[in-house]
Amino acid sequence: MTVKWIGKRMMMGVVVLLVVSFLSFFIMHAAPGDPATAFYGGNAQTLNAAEKERISRVFSLDRPITAQYGSWLVETLKGNLGISYKEGRPVITILRERLPNTLLLFGVTMFFIIVGSVWLGTIAGMKAGSILDKGLSILSIATSSIPAFWLGILFISFFAVKLGVLPSSGTGEIGGEGGFWDKLRYLILPATVIIFTHVGIFARFLQENIKDESRKYYVTVARANGVTEREIRKGILHNASFPYLNYIGMTIPSFFGGSIIVESLFSWNGLGQLTIKSVVTKDFPLLMGSILLIGMLVVISLFIIDFLMYSLNPKLRKGGVQ
């Protein structure tokens, strides 16, 4: 049963990645501008028509899109993501340099968002009507409606420019002395921006689930018959975790989308910033590579969440009997 479920999920993940890659390939080609000119950057005006055509032919840009996509797919499946137009290095090498930074930012922010929201949401939800309960409802709306880029700029001007205690941009010296601690210093501002704009709304969501669950009939029945408060709480939290996990799953794609902005703002050397850069430079192989990798991260995260839900919720496990 479980093996079958995992197999099915993996198939779905592959299909999603295929659709995403095809759509991005298509959109990329439909976008205005021409990679041949972009390739020449500042000297683009000096290119004549014949030279443009030659570049197009060399990069096979004159073939039909579906054919181009087909060869990209075949090569990708062989593990070859091509060479970056701009950097002249294999795409896979560039992605490998960037991936750890994105994983670090994603891991650290997700960790604190989950820990913080579970902590806040649980206390607020379990004490319906308390100051914390009402306070969190207001605070969450306030923090989640602050745009991340605006908060980022505010942070930079305060902590980096005015106080000068934290670096405003970059990922730090990699491999240098104290490389990890150095990186951590650079991580603080972007991570704080993401955590601050997300933790409230996540906590609020959990809080509401807990309050809803606490009103369920079975809770009253248990309470009226002397079931220990500890057991009752455990039951409430267990059931309130299903919609919470579902919510995390639903926000993960937009979470990656949002981190693109924050990465760019803080020049964090991750996949998000790389994506923006390759869009601007029309570096197609690099763009496809980074989209594919981000897509894979999303698919894997969703898989982990689905798996958690599946193992926690017996209704899902027993084939969704209602």
Partner: peptide, 12 residues
């Protein structure tokens, strides 16, 4: 209680 169907926690 009257409503036995809902008297138990569905996931335990």
């Amino acid at each position: 209680f009257q409503d036995a169907l809902n008297s138990f926690n569905p996931s335990v």
